[in-house]
Amino acid sequence: MQRFFKSIDFIEQHLYDKISVHEVAAASHYSTYHFSRIFKALVGDTPKEYLRKRRLTVAAKRLLGEDIGILELALECQFDSQEAFTRAFKGLFNITPAPVPQTKRSFQIAVQRPVQPAYTALSAKRAFHGAGNYYPPGHEAGGHSAAIRQRRF
Rank of each mutant, 00 (worst) to 15 (best):
I8R: 15
I8M: 15
D9L: 06
F10Y: 15
F10V: 02
E12H: 13
Q13R: 12
Q13P: 00
H14I: 02
Y16K: 08
D17N: 13
D17K: 12
K18V: 09
S20L: 10
V21R: 11
V21W: 00
H22I: 03
V24H: 04
A25Y: 02
A25P: 02
A25I: 04
A25W: 02
A26F: 07
S28M: 03
S28V: 01
H29Q: 14
Y30H: 11
Y30V: 06
H34F: 09
S36R: 12
I38A: 10
F39Y: 12
K40Q: 13
L42E: 10
L42K: 13
L42G: 08
T46I: 02
P47V: 10
K48F: 09
K48E: 15
E49I: 06
E49M: 08
Y50G: 02
L51W: 06
R52Q: 12
R55I: 04
R55M: 06
R55F: 06
R55A: 05
L56S: 02
A59D: 04
A59P: 06
G65E: 15
I68A: 09
E72I: 01
E72Y: 04
L73C: 07
C77W: 03
Q78A: 05
Q78K: 14
F79R: 08
E83I: 11
F85Y: 03
F85E: 04
T86G: 13
A88T: 05
K90P: 00
G91H: 05
L92T: 07
L92E: 12
F93H: 08
N94T: 01
N94W: 00
T96G: 11
T96W: 00
Q102P: 00
Q102S: 08
T103C: 02
T103L: 15
S106F: 01
F107V: 09
F107G: 10
F107W: 08
F107I: 10
V111F: 01
R113H: 14
R113P: 00
V115K: 09
A118W: 01
A118T: 12
Y119H: 14
T120C: 03
L122Q: 13
L122C: 03
S123E: 07
S123P: 01
S123K: 10
K125P: 00
R126H: 07
R126Q: 15
A127R: 06
F128G: 13
F128M: 11
Y135M: 06
P136Y: 08
P136F: 09
G138D: 12
G142A: 07
A146Y: 05
A146G: 05
R149N: 14
R149D: 11
R152Y: 14
R152P: 07
